[in-house]
Amino acid sequence: MPYVSNEEAKAAVQDRAGIPPAPSRLARIVDSDMFHSFLRSKVTVVAACGTLILFLLAFLAPWVAPHNPFDLASISILDARVPPVWMEYSDPRFLLGTDDQGRDILSAIFYGMRISLIVGFCSVAAAATIGITLGLVAGYMGGRVDAVIMRIADVQLTFPAILIALLIDGVAAGIFGSIDREVFAFYILIVSLALSFWVQYARTVRGSTMVEKNKEYVQAARVIGIPSVTIMARHILPNVMGPVMVIATINLALAIVTEATLSFLGVGMPPTQPSLGTLIAIGNDFLYSGEWWIAIFPGLALALLVLNVNLLGDWLRDALNPKLR
C-alpha cells in the first residue's frame, strides 16, 4: 500500500487484530481527539467558560441585572453621570457608574449584550441557511446554476459587510421613512447582516461539496438511485458541517462586531433598545468631558464577548483541521 498516514497504519494493524467492541456515545466523546485537544488547551477551556458566563448574564439579564435601565420609574436624572465605585463622588448602588440619564451602566451592559447576542444569533442563522443552501446547490449542480450563484457571490464580495449593511439600511430608510426606522431597525439589521455574510458559507460549502460529490460514497448513493436532494441533505450536508461550524462561530463574533459598528454609526439599534454598540455611541459624546466610563465599559464588555467567541472559533478550526494537528 502506498504512502500511509499514521491513522491508516493503525487501521491496517487493526485489520489483523479483529474488531474491538463499539464504545458508548459518551465514552466516544470523552475519548475523542477533539475533546482531548479541548482539555489540553487551557485558553480554550477558559474561553468556553467565559462565553458561557457572558451568555448566561445576557440572557438572564432581567433576573441578574441590579437595575432595570428601561424602567423609567426607577431612573432618576439626579443619578446621572455617577462614576464607578472606586472613584470619587461615586454611589455604591452603581458598580460601574451611570450614564447621562442616570441608568446603571452594568445593567445596561447586561441588557445590551442580550440584544447584541440575539441580533448575532439570528443573523448567523439566517446567513447560514441562505449560504448553505446556495452553496450545496451550486457545488452539487455545477454548470450554469453554479456560475450564476457564484457570480452573485463575487459581486457581493466586492463590498465589505459593513458597506452592504449601510446601503441596505439607507435604502430601507428611503422606503419606510425615518419614522418607522425604530420599529424595523431589528429586522433591517438581521437582513443586512445575513445578506452580507451568506457568501462565506456559500463559498465554503460549495468548495467542500465539490470535493465531497466526487467522493465515492456519493457515487455509491447515486448508483443506488437516491435522488439529488436526498443526497445533498443526507449525505453531503453532514460531511460539510465541520467548516460551517467554524465559520458560524467566527461569524457570530463578526456579526456582533458589525452590529455594534452599525449601531455606533447610528444606523443600527436605536437608543430605545440599546445594544452594546449603541451604548458606546452614547458614551462617545462624553469621552472628552472626562466621563470615560460610559463608553469604555460597554466597549470592554463587547471586546470580552467577541474575544471569547473568537478563541473558541480558533480552537475549533485547528481541532477540525487534521493537517495542522
Binding site: K215, H235, P238
Partner: peptide
C-alpha cells in the same frame, strides 16, 4: 435498472459516508 446493477469502488476511505 439501478437496483439490478451495483458498484464497488476503489477507495475504501472515501466510499463510505463517515457520518453514518
Amino acid at each position: 435498472m439501478r437496483r439490478q446493477m451495483q458498484m464497488i469502488f476503489q477507495d475504501p476511505y472515501s466510499s463510505l459516508n463517515a457520518r453514518m
